[in-house]
Write a protein that binds this DNA or RNA. Structure first.
Lengths: 161, 161
DNA sequence: ATTAAATAATTGACTCAGTCAACCAATTAG
DNA sequence: CTAATTGGTTGACTGAGTCAATTATTTAAT
């Protein structure tokens, strides 16, 4: 029976944190995007898919770039079919561009200018939220929280997940 | 611009933790219940609604017991209509009992024996998961993680949420 | 080089989680 | 006693997310 106290604490934390995330999600719901859509947008912004000249060259030389859509699907664990629907919607509304590159490799994803603008708006909204959440903390407490978050992530990651 | 580093760190953590929660949720999906159903079950088990003699007496003396269904809905932030559907399903499959008490107060919820058994099974499953997640940690690391979790919850709760 | 197997992208059809609006019952206020 | 609030409940509806089948593409094998 390993670490009963810890397991109990994780349970408590999960309850707490899902509540908190729920609050933050409400803000995202105000936006014109679904939660999933927002996550896709974030992820596309965070790690832009190789596209254009760079992507082409990389693929020409057989550098193993993970396939674009499936990689995204993996990172967000979304069903490929579902991700596809989201991407098509984004393509339809002009937020992303899905180019079949000339070499007939797998299609390549990129945020359009409008897509980037949308992302900026989203990030501004969540920034407001997070700022409101942390504004009452003294600098010292903020540092402590930041440190504690890092610890949690590090220890859980080390634990194997 | 308050605590930029902290905001950034919370972002990182959210990404990490939603991934982790996704993993844990997969186990729940294996169970015959929906995520929401599982949460309802957990919550009903955690804080059993007053029922039977005790509940009756309390209500007779106008002790203000929060209304049963709406309280649940609030804690889990579920739409009342949705919660109702879940409860009806549970009632139909014999996991909870919804009694209109004789005094015609609001209906009262209680897990049946089968409901309690189901909850025990669920908790066993999630315990296995959490155990698997934490088994690789040394005792010292486990203590550190537990402490860090408490800190995060305490600081965020203090921050206002 | 040709075929076979495996992996990725894509689509349409379908299901059911979750929302919405309206309604009923009960309590509180005026 | 009626009006206004609050909580419970329902049916109808929407659309998020799944599933199975299809095509295209890359890798492996002979």
């Amino acid at each position: 029976m390993p670490h009963e106290a810890l397991v109990h604490e994780i349970r408590r934390f999960n309850r707490f944190y899902t509540g908190l995330v729920g609050l933050l999600d409400e803000t995202l719901m105000q936006s014109p995007y679904t939660l999933v859509e927002a996550r896709v947008l974030f992820e596309l912004g965070r790690k832009p898919r190789p596209c254009g000249r760079a992507g082409l060259l990389a693929r020409m030389f057989h550098l193993d770039l993970a396939p674009v859509a499936s990689e995204l699907a993996g990172e967000l664990n979304l069903a490929p079919a579902y991700l596809m629907r989201v991407l098509r919607k984004f393509a339809a509304t002009g937020l992303v561009e899905m180019r079949d590159d000339p070499e007939n490799g797998p299609p390549v994803l990129a945020l359009t200018r409008r897509g980037k603008a949308a992302l900026v708006d989203l990030e501004a909204a969540t920034d407001r939220d997070l700022a409101r959440l942390t504004v009452k903390l003294e600098d010292e407490q903020a540092a402590e929280l930041s440190d504690a978050l890092k610890r949690v992530a590090r220890l859980l990651a080390a634990a194997g997940m």
